[in-house]
Amino acid sequence: MKLSNNSLALAAAFAGLLGGTAARAAQTMPSGSTVGQAGLLAEAAADKKIEKHACKGLNSCKGQGGGDKKQWGKNECKGKGACATDGSKPKM
């Protein structure tokens, strides 16, 4: 380490800490410059069209693409009996 004085390094760190913390406290969202420093945007909030695994346990697969082959993609299988286990046919 070439820093001649550790206290200089500590002062620099604390200066950054104070500046960044104050900037954060002064705003509700990260500033434009901070967003630029955040890195590659991997997933924007708007990309979340549906909650991951949203239908688990809720018995509501509407919009998730379930049901039998005839109903795949129609997203209206809830309550149609396509998942019935008693061998009955779905109501038409």
Partner: peptide, 15 residues
């Protein structure tokens, strides 16, 4: 190095 330290801590705390 001092400039880097200042910038890093500022960015981390702002994030």
């Amino acid at each position: 190095m001092l400039a880097k330290l200042r910038a890093w801590f500022a960015a981390w705390s702002e994030f």
